[in-house]
């Protein structure tokens, strides 16, 4: 979407509201907000065309802090509200903000359907692996054994991986980023916006109050070289510090970590080269790489193309108008069998 030529230059400040931000000190949501506000002016979209739609949760307070159009809706249903907005006004840039509970527990169904329809929207799922707003119960992404008020002896729910969920729903753009990694997140936000179709980003977010340190090994710059597999299209899947580099190869169809020598190109040593557009089996295999056995992939796991839902809905209307002419109410009311009762 191109900015109209006379549109004024926007800056980060234009996207800040006068409302007090009410997240806890140190909450990962602050950095996401700052990064989104920083990226918005660079997208070439007039400010009035942005709509932020959220469900319920700490993360879902997000729209109140964005000086755009915004709608804080009900728990889990943000994708459905956004669907109505995008279908009726395809020219708007619609951003859905949801949490791991909002998007994957109560709203899992809507998330799946929004993704499979491939609406041209962005979905930001803030994954702090806990219910923040309701004060600390385990969520669908919490690790097995996590002790919370509702799981005093440890959670017995097998967690779901948001990325695999999105891929399974047929997502055309799937990425993962980390709350503290500003430049990476900004790049992901821009890529998500460029993508035509549903762009799903899982944001690893810390909740210092109820689940502090849940992503610590990925947030910490030092350990991140070992724990994160930073994806770049066309580049080999390598991680680790120079001198002690490792890579991902495939052995009998199963991913494996191997040591990579700095003397030779990793590809030549059997390391897989990342391809965002590869068939889904590759993306699923990539998504299956999990801690602690593997580094966790961050970046764009998959990008592909599919027709967008709102464009197809628009086509249905245009087709109906072209084939039958614009609707005429008198004709409709008088269609089929009618008769005249004489006075």
């Amino acid at each position: 979407m191109a900015a109209s030529p006379e549109a004024p230059e926007l800056s980060r400040k234009d996207f800040v509201t006068n409302q007090d931000v009410r997240w806890c000190p140190g909450c990962g949501d602050y950095s996401v907000l700052a990064n989104v506000q920083r990226v918005m002016p660079e997208l070439g979209v007039p400010r009035e065309n942005f709509v932020f739609v959220s469900g319920i949760g700490c993360s879902s307070r997000f729209p109140y802090y964005m000086n755009t159009y915004g709608f804080h809706t009900i728990h889990g249903r943000a994708p459905a509200f956004a669907t109505g907005i995008k279908i009726t006004r395809p020219e708007l840039s619609v951003w859905i903000v949801t949490g791991d509970g909002d998007g994957l527990s109560i709203g899992g169904n809507h998330l799946m359907h929004a993704i499979r329809r491939n609406l041209d929207v962005q979905i930001l799922l803030f994954n702090n692996r806990v219910y923040g707003l309701t004060k600390g119960q385990y969520s669908p992404t919490s690790a097995l054994g996590m002790r919370t008020k509702t799981s005093p002896t440890g959670s017995i729910d097998h967690p779901i991986d948001p990325i695999t969920f999105a891929l399974g729903s047929g997502a055309t753009f799937v990425a993962r980023t980390i709350d503290v990694d500003a430049s990476h997140m900004q790049e992901m936000l821009k890529r998500a916006h460029q993508h035509k179709g549903t762009a799903f980003i899982e944001i690893l977010q810390n909740c210092p109050v109820f689940n502090d340190g849940t992503w610590e090994e990925l947030q910490d710059r030092k350990s991140r070289t070992e724990t994160a597999l930073v994806l770049e299209h066309g580049k080999p899947l390598v991680f680790g510090a120079p001198g002690a580099r490792k890579g991902i190869c495939v052995d009998h169809g199963v991913p494996k970590v191997i040591d990579v020598s700095d003397d030779q190109a990793p590809e030549a040593q059997g390391v897989v080269v990342h391809d965002e557009n590869a068939p889904p089996s590759y993306s699923f295999a990539l998504a299956s790489l999990a801690r602690p056995e593997f580094p966790l992939p961050v970046g764009v796991l998959r990008e592909t193309e599919k027709p967008c839902y709102e464009a197809m809905v628009e086509d249905e209307v245009q087709h109906a108008i072209e084939s039958r002419g614009p609707g005429d109410l008198r004709d409709l009311l008088n269609s089929g069998d009618t008769w005249e009762v004489e006075g």
Binding site: V51, V53, F71, T73, I74, G76, R77, P79, A80, F81, A82, T83, G84, I85, I87, T88, R89, L92, N109, H110, M112, H113
Partner: peptide, 18 residues
């Protein structure tokens, strides 16, 4: 829609959009 929660919610979204 995928269910009635989504049916109502999408209609409200459409109303917000005018």
């Amino acid at each position: 829609a995928e269910d009635e929660m989504a049916a109502a919610s999408s209609a409200i979204g459409a109303a917000f959009a005018g």
